[in-house]
Amino acid sequence: MTDILNAIVLLLNFLVIPGIAYGCQLALGALGVTLIYGILRFSNFAHGETMAFGTMFTIIATWFLQSNGISLGPIPTALLALPIGILAAVLLILGTDKLVYKFYRKQKSTPVIYLIASLGVMFFYNGLIRFIIGPDDRIFTDGSRFIITAREFKEMTGLDQGMAFKMTQGITIVVTIICVAALFWFLNKTRTGKSMRAYSDNEDLALLSGINPDRVVMIAWILTATLATIAGTLYGLDKSFKPFTYLQILLPIFAAAIVGGIGNPIGAILGGFVIALSEVSVTFAYKRVIAYLVPESWAPEGLVQLLSTDYKFAVSFTILVIVLLVKPTGLMKGQSI
């Protein structure tokens, strides 16, 4: 019995909790992609860099607060600095919209032109970020590292395996729940939110009923920048901040948005968790879990790892391919194929 409990705790500790935290980060990222897709109808390739940009300003504000001795005790100071990062990202993205995307909206360009423009924007942001903060790793986590340490857990339960619950993981989950609840309240209950959904569902009808398209687009960008900054900061707190990783995270985020059904916010969240949990569970080494569950003589020699962790992109890609082949509209009904 204790062996089974130990195996469960081991799985929770190394697979479920990190998977859920990563899923939250992907879900927030995918929400941004899906919102822009729903309103402006293109896949925004600059989304990863938007995340990095917001995170960068959060980090700079965190450093400022830290150097003035301000902190939140056990909770990372970055949360206090988050509004600064969000503000910076919102300003940047609204400026970008005014200078770049607005023109193509007037021209009624095809989505592909938007997409190429977003590549140019990505290039620019990329240079800007490296110019300001440099290409290196930045660690900005402070406060206490754990909510429950592995040792405390062992003492509490008397099991061999400890379950550590990192502060950053707890924060990620709590912040994500708050953000998602606020977003859905906004989209479903407020007048502006309803007008956004109307615009996304049927642009012509929405325009006919007097919805101001510029306002809808502006709010979509503000929401996207906010979600991107929060997602980026949580990811940076949980792992570390390195500009390049935000370019790489674009693929799982797109995969999450498409798997869930692009343009559909609930789908984006579902997709985030599907991608994150499959990524973690396929690259997890099951050796120790199996060792608990089977008689000693059966214990496996190898790591019992399906794929090495370097192939995590392959996991999101494979899921993406399967969804494209089997159900191109995604798990939840997304926008037209």
Binding site: F45, F313, F317
Partner: peptide, 24 residues
């Protein structure tokens, strides 16, 4: 896999395959 679907899907699929090739 991706041609014949929406135009963005080819872009995203090629982004994915290139990352995988490099990982391999």
């Amino acid at each position: 896999i991706s041609l014949g679907l929406r135009s963005d899907y080819l872009a995203i699929a090629t982004l994915g395959i290139s990352e995988i090739i490099i990982a391999v």
